[in-house]
């Protein structure tokens, strides 16, 4: 499965778990702070991606780049793969 699909699927799961209403559909331009997923949701999403994909770019990067949009978030994980 492509990273974008994996992240999309996980976001849906995490949103249900944390009772968040995601702004659908998520586009590459969707600003993460406006996505509907809250901080707890994002923290869980990052942890799940580490557990299931072995990826933790925010800890592993020498110079950390933080995402502003959904597209940037996906791109960071695609680069980390």
């Amino acid at each position: 499965m492509q990273m974008k699909e994996i992240i999309n699927q996980l976001i849906t799961e995490v949103a249900t778990m944390t009772d968040c209403k995601i702004v659908l559909p998520l586009s590459d331009e969707t600003v993460l702070l406006d996505s509907g997923l809250d901080s707890l949701g994002f923290a869980i999403l990052v942890a799940r991606l580490e557990e299931e994909q072995g990826l933790d770019p925010f800890s592993d990067m020498t110079e950390v780049i933080y995402p502003r949009t959904f597209g940037e978030f996906v791109a960071i994980y695609e680069s980390a793969k």
């Binding site: 993460l32 702070l33 901080s39 994002f42 923290a43 925010f58 933080y66 995402p67 502003r68």
Partner: peptide, 16 residues
Amino acid sequence: YLGEERVLPGIGLVIE
């Protein structure tokens, strides 16, 4: 409040 949008996902928990 967060003034910037390019932040660590989950930063709200750190501030909390």
